[in-house]
């Protein structure tokens, strides 16, 4: 199965890159753009056919390495 994983800074934690992009969008005339958050997107092939097992594995990967849960949150989908 393939896991598509998104890691972003938690809401409430300053995202300097997001702020810079938000500012740039504003300068370009996109006055309707706000609250830009920058994150990471990762794809992982998980060698499991059972969805529950794959789900548990991906969750463990996120908790252990892919996200720092002190400042980041993650979400993923399995296909």
């Amino acid at each position: 199965m393939k896991a598509k994983i998104h890691v972003t800074l938690k809401q409430g934690i300053l995202d300097p890159q997001g702020k810079a992009i938000e500012h740039a969008l504003g300068s370009l005339g996109f006055k309707n753009a706000g609250n830009v958050r920058v994150g990471k997107y990762m794809e992982v092939e998980v060698n499991e056919t059972d969805k529950a097992k794959a789900d548990a594995a991906v969750k463990a990967m996120c908790e252990k390495l892919l996200a720092n849960t002190i400042v980041e949150e993650y979400r993923y989908e399995l296909q």
């Binding site: 934690i13 300053l14 300097p16 720092n68 002190i70 400042v71």
Partner: peptide, 16 residues
């Protein structure tokens, strides 16, 4: 910090 031997985490510098 990442190893959990000290509390907290580092973020990108505010100025980038």
């Amino acid at each position: 910090l990442e190893a959990g031997m000290l509390p907290g985490a580092m973020l990108r510098n505010k100025s980038l």
